[in-house]
Design a binder for these strands. Structure first.
Length: 266
DNA sequence: CAGATGCCCTGGGCGC
DNA sequence: TGCGCCCAGGGCATCT
């Protein structure tokens, strides 16, 4: 979604200026190295690998890699727009626009490296890619003793699911977060596969989930709409949309976990 | 290998 | 209104 919007606006443009002001924004290399690799380069593609945005550049060829983590925003604005607090990097584009990286919690990062990006080689299968089939998912779960939710959150296994979507996916599949991954019957795996695919498809269609903290916004600063379609996430005590039982809140993998006791039996 | 914990930060919401 | 506490969509290191 962010990838798609960015591609539609900046493809073919040249990065005419780069300014990094955030102290922690660039941490895998020196700022000077990043600037040298990005400034003057033309954007040839915008890709996504897991939760990383990969902006392909013609020089090198390098890639400018962006991870928003929990509070980051990537905004395309007119340069005259007031610069918000926590703006840590600014890229001037040949088309006249300005790409800004804004991140209050400073967990997000930028780095510029040769393509293909070796630092992302550890990431698992893309759940939106053509190779993600129920059979393939079954192979990833087989003989695993880990619980389902931590496994879904493990970017080395499936790359792209976070806390919200893991809960929504597990509800959609009727599976509990603490179910042993290796114990799923074929039908369970198929339900899980379908739920992952459908949940992500609909979330993208609704332009993502913006929580009450308003952190996630799209390239143009607009919130998404998928939070209105959340079935369990952040809905503790409210009725399950399927059976009416109150949604429960637990803790798994150190994260708040929302589920229905009735629709997601062990 | 699997799981739990703590940490990197700022800010919003809530209870008192 | 102000203060302290808890919580937050991620990822990584470290320990059991």
């Amino acid at each position: 979604m962010l990838r798609r919007d960015l591609a539609s606006r900046v493809l073919g443009q040249t990065v005419v200026s780069v300014a990094v002001t955030g102290a922690r924004t660039v941490r895998r290399q020196t700022r000077a190295e990043l600037v040298a690799r990005v400034r003057g380069a033309r954007i040839t593609a915008v890709e996504r690998i897991g939760k990383y945005l990969v902006i392909a550049l013609d020089d090198g060829p390098h890639a400018l890699v962006v991870h928003l983590r929990m509070s980051g925003q990537l905004l395309l604005v007119d340069p005259s727009t007031a610069v918000p607090r926590h703006t840590h990097a600014t890229l001037g584009l040949s088309g006249g626009g300005e790409l800004r990286f804004v991140d209050p919690r400073t967990f997000g990062e930028l780095f510029a490296v040769p393509r293909p990006v070796a630092a992302l080689a550890h990431l698992g299968i893309d759940p939106l890619g053509p190779g993600f089939t129920a059979t393939r998912l079954a192979g990833l779960l087989r003989a695993r003793r880990a619980r389902l939710k931590p496994l879904l959150l493990d970017q080395r296994v499936v790359a792209g699911l976070g806390n919200i979507y893991s809960d929504e996916v597990l509800f959609g599949a009727g599976l509990r977060f603490d179910r042993a991954a290796g114990s799923l019957a074929t039908g369970d795996v198929e339900a899980l596969h379908a739920s992952i695919t459908e949940t992500l498809r609909r979330a993208i269609e609704s332009r993502g989930s913006s929580l009450s903290d308003g952190q996630y916004v799209d390239l143009f600063g607009r919130p998404g709409g998928y939070q209105h379609e959340h079935l369990v996430y952040a809905r503790e005590g409210r009725p399950c949309p399927r059976c009416g039982a109150p949604i429960r809140r637990g803790r798994e993998a150190g994260r708040s976990t929302f589920y229905c006791d009735v629709c997601q039996p062990r």
